[in-house]
Simulated assay, not measured.
Amino acid sequence: MAEVKLAAELRTDFGKGAARRIRREEKVPAVIYGHGAEPKHIAIDSHALMMALKTPNVLLRLDVEGKSELVIPKAVQREAIRRFLVHVDFLAVKKGEKVTVELPIQIEGELAPGGNLLEHVLNTLPVEAEATNIPESVTVSIAGLDAGHSVLAKDIALPAGSALAVEDDAVVLQVVSAQAEAPAEEAAEGVEAGAEA
């Protein structure tokens, strides 16, 4: 995973008013924490940060007024409607250090014919990986799976250097029968027919 370098500035004003002022300047208020150090309150250019966060679990090298900080995003708050960045929490990391992250799950292949549905029990897969080598995602093949089949965490091939941070037998995906809803629909039609009579 490549590092993304961004400039950040320390901030000394806190509270809602200060945060609004920072956002008016097209910057995002953020905090760096970790390694037992005092949290650092910073501001980062909103457009540059938004572009960097398009990569899940991106590794950022922040230049905080001449000092370099290696971080990963841990909590990203967005405005509910327009989705602009409101606040970001960063975790300071070091080369060789292990961190727990949530990897997006990419699906490939087609289910067995029959109109069955794929249910995502987990939307992301928790894994432990080296902070400077976090995979972008994991890929799961659902080719030929039929109703009643499940994909467990242990069935997913992890990128080198990663380990599961969830129980091996945790269900990640399952295939459910679309016909399970048909009797309920037929019953509703029967009630309507009875009402018309």
Rank of each mutant, 00 (worst) to 15 (best):
A178K: 07
G190Q: 15
E167L: 14
L122N: 07
I156F: 04
A157K: 15
A178I: 05
T124G: 05
T132S: 09
A131K: 01
A160Y: 03
G144T: 11
P126A: 04
L122S: 03
A170R: 15
G190A: 14
L152W: 10
V172G: 00
E128Q: 15
D169W: 10
E186L: 15
I156S: 02
E181A: 13
V166P: 01
A165G: 12
S150N: 13
H149M: 03
L164V: 02
L117P: 04
V127T: 06
A131D: 01
E181Q: 12
A178G: 15
V166S: 02
A188G: 02
V191F: 15
L117E: 06
V172D: 00
S141R: 05
L164G: 01
A180G: 04
E185F: 14
E130N: 08
T139I: 10
A129F: 00
A170E: 15
A184N: 10
A163W: 01
V151C: 08
K154E: 10
A163T: 15
A165T: 12
H149C: 03
V127L: 04
A178D: 05
L152F: 15
S141W: 06
E128L: 04
H120G: 00
Q179I: 09
V140W: 11
A188V: 07
A129Y: 02
V151L: 06
T132M: 09
G148S: 12
S162D: 06
T132Y: 07
A131C: 05
